[in-house]
């Protein structure tokens, strides 16, 4: 009972209070400046009815998936390699440390110059946002593999390939999973930014487009959907993590 109240009832009440406060607050301003939740819901319905919403969500999700997958495919192998070969890591680490603090957004002018307008610059920005967290956690996960695992492996005469694929990779996996998780968050945040800057479609573009027509209700509708979809992706990731954790024998 207590659990039910704490886990379900309290959050729902907080949310309801927030919506009510918003609705009440919005009454004091013109809707073009500060739309009420009811206006936002109407805007969502309008966008949904004319199909704009679903097209843009589809495009955004596709861009996100492509960029994220690309980051995974590049960052994990590179991270495994750099984690395993300390000398290479030492050589390349300063470069990574200089590039990493540069916001993916700052790459935008170059991205347009190199890739033109369209999908590519947005994908590139999302890729960068996902790339560094995955790379860095993979490197540290490999380096944190307990020495005793490697001792056992060499004691039983396992070759380098077996040690790498059947000891280091699975041992580093829970750590890599943390990076994948962080990267989903950063990548999703940068999706909107990337689409606002150059793209002619997607949720980010939808928000910018609404601004151009002073449709504040649609701006907020876009924001709300970005938040909800982000939450859904995060929850999905959590679920996947749980399944893999049990499979890996690390979670109870």
């Amino acid at each position: 009972m207590r659990r039910l109240v704490e886990q379900f009832l309290l959050p729902v009440l907080t949310l309801a209070a927030f919506v009510l406060l918003w609705q009440w607050g919005a009454r004091h301003y013109p809707p073009e400046q500060f739309p009420a939740p009811s206006d936002v819901v109407k805007a969502i319905k309008e966008l949904s009815d004319n199909g704009v919403l679903w097209t843009n969500i589809g495009i955004s999700l596709a861009r996100f998936a492509a960029a994220y997958l690309l980051a995974v495919l590049v960052a994990i192998p590179l991270g495994l390699f750099l984690g395993r070969f300390t000398r290479c890591h030492r050589a390349i680490d300063p470069l990574i440390q200089v590039l990493r603090p540069i916001s993916p957004i700052a790459w935008f002018p170059l991205a347009v110059l190199w890739f033109g307008i369209g999908n590519a610059p947005a994908v590139f920005i999302i890729f960068l946002a996902a790339f560094y967290p995955i790379l860095l956690t993979t490197v540290s996960a490999v380096r944190a593999v307990p020495a005793v695992y490697l001792k056992v492996s060499s004691n039983f005469g396992a070759g380098p390939a077996m040690t790498f694929l059947r000891v280091i990779v699975p041992a580093a996996f829970p750590g890599i999973m943390v990076g994948l998780h962080i990267a989903v968050g950063t990548a999703w945040i940068h999706l909107v930014a990337g689409e606002m800057l150059g793209a002619q479609s997607g949720l980010g573009f939808m928000i910018i487009d609404a601004r151009n027509f002073l449709r504040t209700d649609q701006i907020m509708a876009g924001m709300l959907l970005v938040g909800l979809l982000g939450l859904a992706i995060y929850k999905g990731m959590k679920l996947l993590e749980g399944v893999i954790g049990r499979r890996w024998g690390v979670a109870g």
Partner: peptide
């Protein structure tokens, strides 16, 4: 073969999988 105080078992493998490791290496 060395046996360690902290076992050195692979948590992602089952008990059987752990015992198989050395045989697979061979």
């Amino acid at each position: 073969i060395m046996i360690f105080q902290d076992y050195g078992l692979y948590p992602w493998r089952t008990v059987l999988g752990n015992v198989l490791f050395g045989l697979q290496a061979r």
